[in-house]
Simulated assay, not measured.
Amino acid sequence: MNIRLIKTKRDYERALARLETLFDAKKNTDNGDELEVLSLLIEKYEDDHFPIDLPDPVEAIKFRMEQLGLTQTDLADIIGHKSRASELLNKKRKLSLEMIRQLHKNWNIPTEVLIRAY
């Protein structure tokens, strides 16, 4: 096992190639340990070099509605009136603290996503 920090794109590409060869390694073996450590190093490099920003709150709500097969009426049941749901989905109304609480509680949308500006 010759593990090194991933500092460059070339190091990253080598690590990915090595990971591919170790992909089916058994746990608690030398190759399994190498696979686990290499995975962590790759994850760290990707987090540092390819960050993924949190989604827009309204897009997150629409995505969750699609995932759960929900409608605008279902949203209205959570946040109040149907007109309020329409305004929210069209970004004409901001989320209130109570709306954020209800969406988090009922649909498990992370609060850190819902509090973002849009």
Rank of each mutant, 00 (worst) to 15 (best):
E34A: 09
D30S: 14
D30G: 09
F50R: 11
T21Y: 10
D47Y: 13
E66M: 09
E34V: 05
D30W: 07
K44F: 13
M65L: 07
K44Q: 13
D53N: 12
D77A: 14
Q67D: 11
I61T: 00
L41D: 06
V37S: 12
P57D: 03
R18A: 06
P57N: 05
E20I: 05
M65A: 02
A60Q: 02
L41V: 03
E36V: 10
I78S: 09
S39H: 10
G32H: 05
T71A: 07
L75Y: 05
G32C: 01
H81K: 11
Q67P: 05
L35Y: 10
D47R: 15
E66L: 09
A60R: 01
T29P: 07
A76H: 06
L41R: 12
L75D: 05
N28K: 15
L75A: 04
S39I: 01
F50H: 13
D53L: 12
P57S: 03
I79Y: 02
D77I: 02
E43V: 05
A76Y: 04
L40E: 13
P55M: 00
R64T: 09
E34Y: 06
E36G: 10
E36R: 12
L70K: 15
D47I: 12
D74V: 01
A76L: 02
L70M: 14
G80I: 01
K27L: 10
K26L: 10
I61M: 00
G80D: 07
L70Y: 12
I78C: 12
L40F: 13
